[in-house]
């Protein structure tokens, strides 16, 4: 194995099970895609439950959905889309070997992700104030049928909660990347971690793109 002898010692080097750097890169990227497929199936279970209950209780779901703040939701969607954009720029900077730009864009992505989580926390807090949190104290004034309304909010919390959990994990990954990026461990030849972290970040973004209309927008056209 002479091909990586010239690489700096602190580079996250070729692992011993691989024969070539290319094989390693392909494997890692492919592995991330497989992982994203498992994530699709994971969220798929929730989307299935949502579909079943929304078709059973279309009216209540519509009313409950309208009680969510679509403006804040849209704002948050914009924040998340921007974070995907900065993530793309980070990956591009890594490909070009621009260390300072990479660090900058990683920080921006992290800040935008944090902003999203902050807004989300504000929204959840609103739900607590309004007694829209499922459980003993639940009360939804918009519909006489409390049960299905509670189902909507159960799904709302389950779906946005799991999404937020993925954002937190994503933020952790960004911090790890940042740590190594600052130390200059990514080069134009070796930037696979940045690449696959980008895939993950975009995936979490796409989940939100589905959640936002399904939770916030389903009944807006009436009003």
């Amino acid at each position: 194995m002479s091909e990586h002898v010239h690489a700096p010692v602190e580079t996250l080097a070729l692992r011993e099970q691989f024969n070539t750097a290319e094989q390693q890169k392909e494997s890692v990227t492919f592995g991330m895609w497989i992982f994203l497929i498992t994530e699709v199936m994971f969220f798929g279970g929730l989307f299935l439950a949502y579909t079943v209950y929304r078709s059973t209780y279309p009216v209540v779901f519509g009313v409950a959905s309208t009680s969510l703040n679509a403006v804040i939701g849209a704002l948050n969607t914009a924040v998340l889309l921007c974070s995907s954009f900065t993530m793309v720029l980070a990956v591009r900077s890594a490909q070009l070997g621009r260390r300072r730009a990479l660090v900058l864009f990683l920080i921006l992505t992290l800040l935008l992700g944090m902003a999203f989580l902050g807004v989300k926390a504000y929204e959840w807090n609103e739900k607590f104030v309004e007694h829209h949190v499922p459980g003993a104290g639940f009360h939804f004034e918009g519909a006489a049928e409390q049960g299905p309304a509670q189902l909507f909010f159960s799904l709302y919390f389950a779906m946005t909660g799991l999404h937020a959990l993925h954002m937190v994990v994503g933020a952790g990954i960004l911090c790890w990347l940042l740590y190594h990026a600052v130390r200059g461990r990514f080069t134009a030849e070796y930037m696979t971690p940045v690449d696959v972290a980008g895939l993950y970040w975009h995936f979490v973004d796409i989940i939100w793109i589905f959640l936002f209309p399904l939770l916030y927008l389903i009944d807006r056209h009436m009003r």
Binding site: M41, F42, F43, G45, P134, A136, S154, A158, L162
Partner: peptide, 24 residues
């Protein structure tokens, strides 16, 4: 890879139903 995540999320829902009484 395709099946296990579905049972995972189902178990999460059972878990939430017992702990938080969300009632899916």
């Amino acid at each position: 890879v395709l099946g296990t995540p579905v049972v995972a999320v189902t178990i999460v829902l059972v878990f939430c139903e017992r702990v938080f009484h969300i009632g899916i």
